[in-house]
Design a protein around this nucleic acid. Structure first.
Length: 269
DNA sequence: CACCATGTTAGGAG
DNA sequence: ACTCCTAACATGGT
């Protein structure tokens, strides 16, 4: 279940793993091959499997990332990758394998049990456009822009059109680092809160990336045996590591927000 | 069985 | 035009 740091980890892994052309492609479930980045997994079905085979025997370029999307170029064609909430690229045998790229040194598998992610094969120019279409600046490379609107700041941080890369977990953790109330209307944040939030976002992304480590394979929090190094995520009732007050949980835009009601409380007009 | 899940989108109400 | 909510995608874990 990936956000920007996990996608960046994936990008680096693909770069290490694939320095020579793909030799064969095996599509076990064509539904993950999508016609456009905006199409739902089962929508926009076309002969995507055939377009994947165009990449065979072409030298790969280092994958690029914007927000949670990856562009992976092979000559004049490219793949736009999105992991959704359940996608994973791995070199190990895995359940829910949907696509297998056969390399000189063994298989590289895309697995995605819920089909929330996908692979979009496109001509290079179209892929370049799709990489950033509809997305705000990259939260890691470009930093957090000053957002506007009356929406709660947590909801604004998760809006990919406003800033690309933050999702439910890292948005909440960044707000905790910055001591900002997730319910605060975006327009009510003062300069000091924005400054803290910029730092909080940057530190959260760096922390997450560092926690993923140098291992070959990614392990998500939700995986069996997966670690949870985050102070708030799924820890309602446990003490806040900073002030000791019980961590709370609320629902915003249909998603759980974990927060510390004591040190993230803000005086509201 | 009920509810939850690091994502995204379409559709509808106010 | 904004803002907000719900359902849907399809599956597994608690």
């Amino acid at each position: 279940m990936p956000e920007l740091p996990e996608v960046e980890f994936c990008r680096r892994a693909l770069d290490r793993w694939v320095r020579a052309p793909i030799r064969a492609v095996e599509v076990l479930d064509p539904r993950v091959i999508r016609g456009a980045t905006t199409a739902r997994p089962t929508a926009g079905l076309d002969d995507g499997a055939a377009r994947l085979t165009r990449l065979i025997d072409r030298p790969p370029a280092p994958p690029e990332r914007h927000g949670k999307r990856i562009l992976w170029r092979f000559g004049e064609d490219a793949l736009v990758l999105h992991l959704g909430m359940t996608g994973k690229w791995t070199r190990r045998p895995t359940p829910h394998a949907k696509v297998i790229l056969h390399l000189d040194d063994g298989p590289l598998t895309y697995a995605d049990p819920r089909l929330l992610g996908g692979i979009v094969p496109l001509p290079l120019a179209a892929a370049r456009a799709a990489l950033t279409a509809g997305l705000g600046p990259d939260a890691l490379r470009d930093g957090l822009p000053r957002l506007t609107g009356r929406r709660p700041i947590k909801v604004a941080l998760m809006d990919q059109a406003a800033v690309a890369g933050l999702g439910n977990l890292h948005a909440a953790e960044a707000l905790w680092r910055a001591c900002v109330d997730p319910r605060a209307p975006t327009d009510t944040l003062d300069d000091d809160a924005w400054a803290r939030l910029r730092v909080g976002v940057a530190e959260q992304l760096r922390f997450a990336l560092q926690t993923l480590g140098e291992d070959e394979e990614i392990l998500y929090v939700e995986d069996p045996g997966g670690p949870n190094p985050f102070p708030l995520y799924q820890r309602a009732g446990e003490p806040c590591p900073r002030c000791g007050a019980p961590i709370g949980r609320l629902v915003q835009a249909g998603r759980s927000t974990w927060w510390c009601p004591a040190c993230q409380a803000v005086s509201r007009p």
